[in-house]
Design a protein around this nucleic acid. Sequence first.
DNA 1: TTGTAAGCGTTATCAT
DNA 2: ATGATAACGCTTACAA
Lengths: 326, 326
Amino acid sequence: MATMREVAVAAGVSPKTVSRVLNDDPHVSPETRLRVEESMQELAYVPNALATTFRSGRSPVVGVAVPDIVDPFFAAIVNAVEERALAEDLSTLVISLGHDPARERAVLESVLRRQLSGLVVAPTTTDHAYLEPWAARIPIAFVDRAPGRLVADTFIHDDRGGAHSATTHLIGHGHTRIGFLAESADTPTIVERLEGYRSALADAGLPFDASLVHFGATTRPVAAAALEALARPDGATAVFSADARCTMAAVPALKAHPLPLVGFGDFPLADVLTPSITVVAHDPAALGRLAAERLVERAAHPERRLRRRTVLPVTLIERESCRTPV
Amino acid sequence: MATMREVAVAAGVSPKTVSRVLNDDPHVSPETRLRVEESMQELAYVPNALATTFRSGRSPVVGVAVPDIVDPFFAAIVNAVEERALAEDLSTLVISLGHDPARERAVLESVLRRQLSGLVVAPTTTDHAYLEPWAARIPIAFVDRAPGRLVADTFIHDDRGGAHSATTHLIGHGHTRIGFLAESADTPTIVERLEGYRSALADAGLPFDASLVHFGATTRPVAAAALEALARPDGATAVFSADARCTMAAVPALKAHPLPLVGFGDFPLADVLTPSITVVAHDPAALGRLAAERLVERAAHPERRLRRRTVLPVTLIERESCRTPV
DNA sequence: TTGTAAGCGTTATCAT
DNA sequence: ATGATAACGCTTACAA
């Protein structure tokens, strides 16, 4: 691995001149430039990006931390961030948080030590006070889930409103006992959606029945058991599935327990299933795009005042599954 | 941002001693250690990972380059690599190659300049001679698609065999005119699968008819048009879809043109659709895991001789779509 | 137009 | 057990 110094010696110039050639500095005579370029060729010189990065004090990398990249929702966020980052000549470091909250802090602090240019986080925990000192130096944006105990740029969906309209939609179909299916009671998005569900019931003068709420239904067996329980005579006559993983897990069990269902979060082929699934659609790519955009903006104008919280609207897409099967 | 030098001054020791404390060097007296630790606390010292990285000459990062992380197949590869990398305290840099082959070289060389610890690539091009000089210093493993004009560790599936058995399966159902649907004729995996399809036909004494081969069917309209063409009287009586994107794009059109179909690549909910889709299943996570494992092994034992090429078996999962609808 | 000197923050080497 | 010095490869500031 040839260094700049070696190229300089070979070309009979100083390292600085090699640097100038490399960075297209106009203050180099054509002959010198040529000689340097030849030496670079001969020595197969490749600049060591680590040195440049170190010198500059900032790594041209944005981090994106998500619970799980295999989930198409988070994959879309990562993809959008990467796309925007690339336009700024930034690379993207992906951090899978996993569904274990204990890992989050250690993993994030470890990447932040690398002097990132920015960080996008879809967190799995609810206390982000530990990011406070970092946020002062590195732009950090939260997506999908708001930070806890920390003021930071946040891009989320209207979880509460979406859940409210999904529930109201089922109520409009005449249902008074509606089941609630979700992944985990600790996820901020789920908390919001549960709120939306409850407020929709309240707005319709319907009681909230905790026995109709099922958490952890992310696998087919669990989702099937939940649907079976809900399908009992004293159970529910319809279901609101508060996240796409649960909806996808519940779909097979719908054959045995054909309850009307609305899901939060669209997913591939939802419109092709039998029945096709009515969903509240949201836009993960928009979250990623906006967050990355914000990082860039914060880096360019650290002093500028911007709205911290952006809430994206969601849309109910009515398909077949919300209607009672005949 | 306090530096090690500042901590040293505060604690009244030399920077090297601070370094020793940081790295748990036993040659530090308990009192000194304590004093240093206090100073670190006071100054809220955080080591600058960029400096350490630069000093070491190697970045604790593995790159993973895939055509598209939103594709669950590639997401699974990335995920598996990240998981394995994490066990070695390595971060994962994701590089989306996109479906534009022109980008590959520039993007890969740019990240390689960062002195990665390793690189996993699912390439979009077929000539990788430009990686030769890099491969001498950095472990590079290819996944899903073999490299062209370069000898490197390669982990792929039995594309040809899988396509052969899928086609043979349809032939076994009495079909003699079988359509072929795929993304792009240039993708190495597709080339192999086309070969497998052709050889299965040949083995059964059936002619190959180029008019039954449709490329670019990755979107619903294109896939629908292809199926419509195939469904004509002089067309095909069954279809082999050579990749999951095409299969998913073709599914909706199956309602209008209910041709028996076998797809290469399983996908979420394939078993729940009506009809459920018969597929050749493969294992992207295994590719990622093996490739990452290999990078680690190459780094640890540069001299060791290992089999360059690993071909993973695939499995036909028979569901409903391979049978003629009644 | 070109070069010199210094430094980014950490660690290896060699003293003491 | 601790420290002085140099070095990693590049770029900035300042000179010539």
